[in-house]
């Protein structure tokens, strides 16, 4: 089974040289720490950064330089700064190649829900709806089940949607999966996790083709 760091490491394997990548809040942010050697990617933060760098050293924090999670960050050489309209022009205009974000639920047709629990939690969608509506590649970083042990990979979402038919790939603590033809296709098992465990944790339609390899993490 993968922990949060493991999920981030596995997602980092999906990065391709020359990509601009938007990382959501939480586990997705960790992906920046595991960019494979030999490839160059630039991280976009929707509040207005291209070429976002790591957290600053203690004492060098700048209140005017934060990421979309409101955390203090730094800029890489060659970075640029822009306003919110320009930032979403990059996103909506499909100039950003990959979006990584978290989800509360995902459906076998690629629908995603991650912004609202009616009557309980209303934080807002932030940039998530713009991102999922336009991204060419969307990878979800999430736990396979919720705290009660119920599957978050469903036949259809029960929570208010963030976007429809948009998710293509999911990395969970149990597995790597692809969404196509209205089903979750199992690609890889997390280390030490059996196909049976993944089946039991997946409420939506799960397709298993042949032997499912175990993930290889560096």
């Amino acid at each position: 089974m993968l922990d949060k760091t493991g999920i981030a490491k596995r997602i980092a394997q999906e990065l391709q040289d020359g990509w601009y990548v938007n990382l959501g809040i939480g586990i997705p942010t960790l992906v920046a720490n595991y960019v494979p050697k030999g490839i160059t990617v630039e991280f976009q933060s929707e509040n207005g950064i291209l070429g976002m760098g790591p957290f600053p050293y203690e004492g060098e924090e700048d209140a005017d330089l934060i990421n979309a999670g409101k955390q203090t960050v730094t800029l890489m050489p060659g970075a640029s700064i822009f306003d919110s309209a320009t930032s979403f022009a990059m996103i909506r205009g499909q100039h950003v190649q990959l979006t990584v974000l978290g989800a509360m639920e995902v459906a076998q047709n690629g629908d995603i829900a991650n912004w609202k629990i009616p009557g309980k939690m209303v934080k807002g969608m932030g940039g998530a709806m713009d991102l999922v509506a336009s991204a060419e590649n969307i990878i979800l970083a999430m736990m396979h089940t919720n705290k009660k042990g119920e599957s978050k990979l469903l036949p259809s979402c029960t929570l208010p949607l963030t976007g429809v038919n948009c998710v293509t790939r999911i990395i969970t603590n149990l597995a790597a999966l692809e969404i196509k033809d209205n089903a979750f296709y199992l690609l890889e098992r997390a280390p030490g996790v059996s196909v049976e465990e993944i089946k039991a944790a997946t409420a939506g339609k799960l397709v298993i083709e042949g032997d499912t390899p175990e993930m290889k993490l560096v």
């Binding site: 790591p54 957290f55 600053p56 050293y57 203690e58 060098e60 924090e61 209140a63 005017d64 934060i66 999670g69 409101k70 955390q71 203090t72 960050v73």
Partner: peptide
């Protein structure tokens, strides 16, 4: 005041 919401740093 320029308050910081999430002060995140790394160690040298």
């Amino acid at each position: 005041e320029k308050r910081i919401e999430q002060r995140t740093v790394r160690q040298k």
